[in-house]
C-alpha cells in the first residue's frame, strides 16, 4: 500500500527537471515523514545514491525521518514577532500544549506587522495574546 502510493508520487514527477524536492514534499505530506526505506525507493527511482537522498532529507527542516502524529502549532519567533512580544507567550503555549501538541518555532510567516503570529496547517492566526494562543493550542 505504502509502496503503491510512493510509486504514484514518483510517477507524477517523472517528467520534471530536478524532481527530488517536489517528491519529498509529496511524500512528507502523504506519510508524515520520509523514512529510510522510502529514501531507498526514491534513490533508486531517480538513479541517486541513498546518501544523496538522505543528505537532502536531513538538510531541510520540512522533512523528517520519523512521523510525529501530534498536531503542530508553528509559532513565529523571528525578530519582528519578538518585537511584538512573542517570547512572553511561549511559556503559556507550552504549558497548554503539554505532550499532546507540538509547538515548533518558525522563522517568519510574513505577518510581521501584526504579530505574534502562528500557523496550524494552512490556517494562519495573528495579533495573538496569551489567551488567544492558549485557545488555539487547546483546539489544535
Amino acid at each position: 500500500m505504502t509502496n503503491e502510493r510512493l510509486q504514484e508520487i514518483l510517477a507524477r514527477h517523472g517528467q520534471s527537471e530536478g524532481p527530488l524536492l517536489p517528491i519529498l514534499h509529496d511524500v512528507q505530506r502523504a506519510f508524515g515523514c520520509v523514512s529510510p526505506d522510502m529514501q531507498q525507493v526514491i534513490a533508486q527511482a531517480l538513479n541517486l545514491s541513498r546518501a544523496e537522498v538522505h543528505g537532502v532529507v536531513s538538510f531541510y527542516h520540512d522533512f523528517t525521518e520519523e512521523a510525529d502524529t501530534r498536531p503542530c502549532v508553528q509559532l513565529c519567533r523571528a525578530e519582528a514577532c519578538q518585537a511584538r512580544g512573542v517570547e512572553a507567550l511561549v511559556e503559556a503555549a507550552e504549558a497548554a500544549a503539554g505532550n499532546r501538541v507540538r509547538i515548533s518555532p518558525v522563522y517568519c510567516l510574513g505577518l510581521c506587522s501584526v504579530g505574534p503570529a502562528a500557523r496550524i496547517g494552512d490556517a494562519l492566526h495573528a495579533r495573538l495574546n496569551a489567551a488567544s494562543l492558549v485557545k488555539l493550542v487547546e483546539a489544535a
Partner: peptide, 8 residues
Amino acid sequence: DEGDSGTF
C-alpha cells in the same frame, strides 16, 4: 524565498 523577518 522571502525569509527575512520583517519583510512581506
